[in-house]
Design a protein around this nucleic acid. Structure first.
Lengths: 216, 216
DNA sequence: TATCAACAAAAAGTATACAGTTAATGCTGA
DNA sequence: TCAGCATTAACTGTATACTTTTTGTTGATA
């Protein structure tokens, strides 16, 4: 298990933190500081951070590494990519899914519903990530999966901001249940359509949100 | 101009070499050796090489860095990605294209035709890359363009191997001229269709090639 | 002759030191 | 009080040395 080297462990570590939303938009990651905490030298940490930069998870500034600041345009661009890739990904995953995948998705949905009782949105968000991971892992095309995961990290914060109110949450869960049904039936077309609507809904929510922020 | 640091210069350097096909499949890139040649220390070279790995241009082995050896499955996976992304990319680029883009594409096609007189395929290949760059740069969605460029580096060698005989070359040029016409007319649909056929032709050539290799 | 183990060589990985840059801080003068 | 400049502190970038891992080779033994 500890056969991997320091760089790989640190890379995995920070990547997980980012994916969990534990790195705020103002957090500055500095190699020396992290190295100090872990009791290792700068170099492996620095290399891990730079790898995360080239993977799009971080942005290197002259004063530490931080989450990349996405412009409005970039976010819309990512939605285009999602529309192009995720329906096909969902379709192929639905066809190739195993029973374990169904179980994982089922469990994730239950977890999501359980979070509805609280007002906090972070647990809800985390559970949604888990649901997403569970079907994404069933995508047989590794390169496609990797590509999707690459930008997933970046739009993380956006998705978080569009999931706030209860109505939106209910809509999301309805969509997830629909996707789950498609996966159960191994219905590729249904999964594709479901995913298309899902992404378009996400974009609509985002556009509404930004309009609201402008006017008030 | 020399404001960029050593790492960035070395990265750009090696990347260009790879794109030009100057790195053979048996070439082993070792940081100490390259550093020695350039009169710098290992570290910036090592970092450049590792960045190229995470970008998919190279593969890190226990004995130097080398071109990644793509499995048959991986290559087919990349074709799926191309089918999903490039038609849309071409369509949007056709709509947004400027006169400079047309000029660049035109020039590239002329250059390609000029290489037909020789038997060598490397000039032809290079000119094709140039054509591809010229329309790809017109894709307005930066993230989409970046995503396409990311895997482009990897399938480089495959594309090279499918471009050998004269008939294939003529087919490719015909396709390029068609794409150029679509761009001139700002015809997004035509560009999309053209690109779909282009990618599917490429996949067909590749499949034919691998079948031929198996049988002898 | 084949196999395996010991050893040597090469390269990756890590640590540390130091140089170069850039942003924050504080200081001066209007 | 604030603009402008100098100083300083915080990081990044590069160099070098050392450690660990992996591979290739030699040689002894069956």
């Amino acid at each position: 298990m500890t056969r991997r080297n320091i760089r790989q462990r640190v890379h995995e570590d920070i990547r997980t933190q980012i994916l969990r939303g534990e790195i705020g938009p103002d957090t500055k990651l500095v190699d020396t500081a992290i190295a100090g905490e872990l009791g290792v030298s700068r170099m492996p940490v620095r290399e891990a951070l730079m790898q995360l930069v080239s993977e799009g998870y971080l942005e290197g500034t002259s004063r530490g590494f931080a989450l990349p600041s996405l412009s409005h345009e970039q976010i819309l661009e990512f939605f285009v990519l999602r529309r192009l890739l995720e329906p096909h990904a969902a379709a192929s995953a639905a066809q190739a899914r195993t029973e374990q995948v169904i179980a994982a998705m089922q469990e994730a949905v239950s977890a999501i519903q359980a979070t509805l009782t609280t007002r906090a949105f972070e647990p809800f968000f985390r559970a949604c990530e888990h649901f997403r991971d569970s079907w994404l892992n069933a995508v047989p095309n590794t390169e496609l999966r990797r590509t999707i995961q690459r930008y997933s990290g970046q739009v993380q914060s956006v998705r978080l901001s569009t999931m706030r109110d209860l109505d939106t949450k209910r809509t999301i869960i309805a969509g997830q249940l629909e996707l789950l049904e498609a996966f159960k039936a191994k219905d590729a077309l249904a999964a594709s359509n479901c995913m298309s609507r899902f992404v378009m809904e996400g974009e609509k929510s985002y556009r509404k949100l930004t309009r609201a922020e402008w006017s008030g």
